[in-house]
């Protein structure tokens, strides 16, 4: 997937599943939208579906410091490169 596709999918997940409509790409999700560890776990499940493969414990741990949509896109991009 190209970056724009990943970003579009992530924003769709945020709109449909997390019920955050239009977060800014560099907004701090925790501070501005109360995005918490439970949301993060659910997002990881969605990312697994997006990539069509499960994530390892280490890969999940890497995601726990992510704060913004751009960082999520970076994370998915790097996973995609590793997995493919």
């Amino acid at each position: 997937m190209i970056r724009e596709e990943i970003q579009s999918k992530i924003l769709e997940i945020f709109r449909e599943e997390v019920e955050i409509e239009k977060p800014g790409l560099d907004d701090d999700l925790r501070e501005m939208y109360e995005f918490d560890s439970i949301d993060a776990l659910e997002l990881l499940g969605e990312i697994e579906k997006l990539l069509g493969t499960g994530l390892t414990q280490d890969e999940k741990k890497q995601a726990m410091d992510i704060r913004t949509i751009n960082q999520i896109c970076d994370y998915v991009e790097s996973l995609e490169k590793e997995k493919l």
Partner: peptide, 12 residues
């Protein structure tokens, strides 16, 4: 079974 979607949220 390859997706680890069972997690803390389901438990809660």
């Amino acid at each position: 079974s390859g997706l680890s979607s069972i997690g803390a949220v389901d438990y809660l």
